[in-house]
């Protein structure tokens, strides 16, 4: 237990990730409002992106661009570019998802006149 606690305290980024992730799941499941469910989903997706960024952070590192081709390259001085590339793509996917889901929500609102899941399910019966 003490060891686990120590491991956790040394990784504040991952505590933040876990809190955001679980919070997002809570909002997705607990709120009957469809837009709030979307906000929950958005928080879950953002927490995963935060996770990707958090593990690629490196102290004292700079952007991975070579200014000269003569000096020898020390990988320790540069941040890993790949997680950032993944992050950009994941954000694009997230935005596309948000676009489709908002379109669905507005269509649901026009059809059922409500955003409350309980009321919509009542109408579906």
């Amino acid at each position: 237990m003490g060891e686990l606690l120590q491991t956790l305290i040394q990784r504040p980024n991952f505590i933040v990730f876990a809190i955001l992730f679980l919070w997002g799941i809570y909002i997705m499941t607990a709120h009957p409002n469809l837009v709030k469910k979307l906000i929950g989903l958005y928080i879950v997706q953002t927490s995963v992106i935060f996770f990707l960024v958090a593990f690629s952070a490196k102290e004292g590192a700079t952007v991975p661009i070579l200014l000269t081709d003569t000096a020898s390259v020390d990988a320790l001085n540069y941040a890993n570019p790949l997680p950032h590339a993944l992050t950009v793509t994941a954000i694009v996917v997230q935005i596309a998802t948000l676009g489709v889901s908002l379109a669905l929500v507005s269509a649901i609102y026009r059809k059922f006149g409500s955003l409350d899941e309980d009321e919509i399910l009542e109408q579906l019966k």
């Binding site: 997706q45 996917v93 489709v100």
Partner: peptide, 17 residues
């Protein structure tokens, strides 16, 4: 279909995350 598409989207996107 809209309501079930929305549910599919919530679960599917959560799976993708």
């Amino acid at each position: 279909g809209l309501v079930y598409a929305f549910r599919y989207l919530l679960l599917g996107s959560f799976g993708a995350s």
